[in-house]
């Protein structure tokens, strides 16, 4: 007996007819075999009490003739399904808002604004300019968007990018001035090193202190200057060989005026400066060297420029 108990499933395998020939032969010679065989044979002649399934089926037919019961009390969910959807939307909006949180600074006509960025870098915005940047992760992603003119004093750190319509200015701790208006793009480097990438020219230039570059009508101009700080911070705008159109835009921004330029050649270049404090003085300093005359049209609130021939 003992040796068959050793293997738990031996007898079960025997019943199922799964023993090998040798195993079976050995087993048939054991003294337990006749008894177990008799038990097996006899137990197969047994039967359970008769089960009157037809009677039960008839009973069931009576009981189930009605429609299957639907649960009597409707189940009202504690949290309806739409609440999950709404929660997801709220969280997504929140994430979107945080990820895209922007600081936005704007200057109006004849305004200037100094902005201190989260890393203590400073931006000085000239008149009629816009500056945007994402406040989240500022330290690892120092990028801002500029429209107009601004002077940057950048703290050392990761790369610092100024994105404009016309190109990208990239620096590692330095001072520089950027003008980006419509298609005009100008960068002056005061300190450190600046890399300027022009979108329209698909070209990158590295500027050292005292160097400046501008892109007008898809052509690139480089020049040198000696200022430590742009003059507009001191109440004066300075130009070196700049197209008169840009000079007039700068005047418009400082004094909130409008020029009628239909009668003059906008591609002429201007070198010089105008003050921010006195409009008539500024107009004279710009128009005289350029051989222009101006008349103020009070009705339309515009200043008409004419070439003196």
């Amino acid at each position: 007996m003992e040796k068959f108990i050793k293997e738990d499933e031996f007898l079960a395998r025997w019943i199922a007819g799964e023993l090998s020939k040798e195993e079976l032969k050995k087993f048939e010679n054991s003294e337990d075999y006749p008894v177990l065989k008799k038990i097996n044979d006899a137990s197969q002649t047994l039967k359970a009490p008769t089960f009157n399934s037809q009677a039960l089926l008839n009973k069931l037919r009576e009981q189930t003739s009605a429609k299957p019961k639907t649960s009597k009390t409707p189940i009202i969910k504690l949290i309806p399904n739409w609440a999950y959807a709404a929660a997801v939307v709220v969280v997504a909006l929140g994430m979107f808002y945080v990820m895209n949180m922007q600081s936005h600074f704007t200057t109006g006509f004849s305004e200037q604004l100094a902005v201190v960025l989260p890393d203590n870098s400073e931006v000085k915005l000239n008149a009629n300019s816009h500056l945007y940047y994402k406040t989240l992760n500022w330290k690892s992603n120092r990028a801002l968007e500029l429209e107009g003119e601004a002077f940057f004093d950048v703290e050392k750190g990761e790369s610092f990018k100024v994105l404009t319509n016309e190109g990208i200015v990239e620096v590692l701790g330095t001072e520089f001035n950027v003008i980006s208006r419509d298609t005009y793009f100008e960068v002056q480097c005061m300190e450190g090193k600046v890399r300027v990438t022009s979108n329209s020219l698909k070209k990158a230039i590295i500027l050292l202190p005292g160097e400046a570059v501008r892109v007008i009508n898809k052509s690139l101009e480089e020049w040198n200057f000696t200022l430590n700080e742009p003059n507009w911070l001191a109440g004066e705008s300075t130009f070196y060989n700049a197209p008169i159109s840009q000079v007039l835009v700068a005047l418009e921004n400082q004094f909130q005026i409008t020029f009628d330029t239909s009668n003059i050649d906008l591609d002429k270049r201007f070198t010089g400066a105008f003050t921010h404090t006195d409009l008539s003085l500024a107009l004279r300093t710009v128009s005289a060297p350029m051989n222009l005359s101006y008349t103020v049209n009070n009705e339309k609130g515009i200043i008409v420029l004419n070439s003196k021939q």
Partner: peptide
């Protein structure tokens, strides 16, 4: 299978 074997052992 275990229960089957055990049953046979018990009966035996």
């Amino acid at each position: 299978e275990k229960r089957m074997s055990l049953a046979l052992v018990t009966l035996r």
